[in-house]
Simulated scan of single mutants.
Amino acid sequence: MLCQPIDRRLFLTGAVAALALPCLLANAAAMPTMDEVAADPAIPALGNPQGDVTIAEYVDFQCPVCKLAFIELKKLLAEDAGIRLVMKDWPIFGDASRYAAKMALATSDSGHYGQAVDALMTAEGRLSERRTDTILADAGIDLARTRANLAERGAGIDALLVRNESQASAFKLRGTPALVVGGRLFRHGLSLDELRTAVRQARS
């Protein structure tokens, strides 16, 4: 599976199709609950962990459109202290993406998860295991400790990635990124203005 073909101009200006999750959850027993999507205890929350609006993003660290979406999300976090951001790793670009996702999640034990996500999402080009290690090390992350955490928590992290993939399948997502904002599913990235609108609707 690949990212949907959206260039930067279309990403920032195009209309966004949305699907209301509450309606889906009421009519399809196979759909994940909002707690499963937005409050998985295995995923550290970025932004404000006690925020009043949760944004969950299905993401691959090698997806170029995900990187554009992350830029817009960072702008939102900088201006809105009430946002809780949950990164739902869905490594659809293969083993390198899966390794990056697992290493990022393994940094949560040392309190460096936000640094890892930011470093990987802002890195240009394709990833490999070696390049992921370099990116994380350059961000000040202890690779030996992270690998030890991954060895200890590997089964749990693998199970988390399976949960994320199952949710993406239930939502019939075709690629990354996809966002859930306060109970609504958006099937690709949102510009800052679109994020503001979605958050405002969630609060109302």
Rank of each mutant, 00 (worst) to 15 (best):
S166Y: 02
F70K: 09
V65P: 04
M34P: 07
L77P: 04
L46S: 00
L46Y: 01
E36H: 03
A69S: 15
R153Q: 15
A151C: 08
L12T: 10
A155R: 15
K88Y: 00
R9N: 09
M121D: 08
A69R: 08
D89F: 02
T54C: 02
V37H: 01
A56G: 07
I135D: 13
M87W: 01
D109Q: 13
D52I: 01
K67M: 05
A106L: 04
L127E: 06
A69Y: 08
D52P: 07
D158T: 14
G111I: 00
N48T: 06
A101Q: 02
A39N: 14
S110Q: 13
A17D: 11
D52A: 10
A159H: 07
I6M: 08
M87P: 01
M31D: 08
L25C: 11
A42I: 04
C63R: 03
Q62K: 06
L21T: 01
R200E: 15
A137C: 08
R131H: 11
V86H: 01
R98Q: 13
E57D: 05
L192R: 12
L192S: 11
Q62I: 07
A30P: 07
M103H: 03
A30D: 14
P64T: 10
S169P: 04
I83C: 02
G140K: 05
T13A: 10
D60C: 05
D95I: 10
L24T: 05
P41R: 09
I6G: 06
A29R: 15
E57N: 02
L85D: 03
A155G: 12
G47Y: 00
D52S: 13
R153Y: 09
P49A: 11
R130G: 13
T13H: 12
I141C: 03
T132Y: 10
T132W: 08
P44H: 05
N149A: 14
E36S: 11
G111A: 02
G156L: 04
A20E: 15
V59C: 07
V199D: 00
E124C: 03
G156D: 13
A56M: 01
G47E: 04
D193E: 14
Q201D: 12
N164W: 03
L12H: 09
L161H: 05
V162A: 13
A151L: 15
V117I: 10
A170P: 09
D89I: 00
R8P: 06
L25V: 11
A198S: 06
K67S: 09
A45C: 04
K67Q: 12
V16F: 01
G114L: 02
G140D: 09
T33F: 06
R147K: 12
P49I: 02
L150E: 07
K172I: 04
D138G: 14
E129D: 11
D109V: 03
M103L: 14
T176W: 07
K102A: 11
R145M: 12
A106D: 07
I71C: 05
A39P: 08
L12Q: 14
M1D: 11
I71Q: 15
P32K: 05
S97Y: 11
N149G: 07
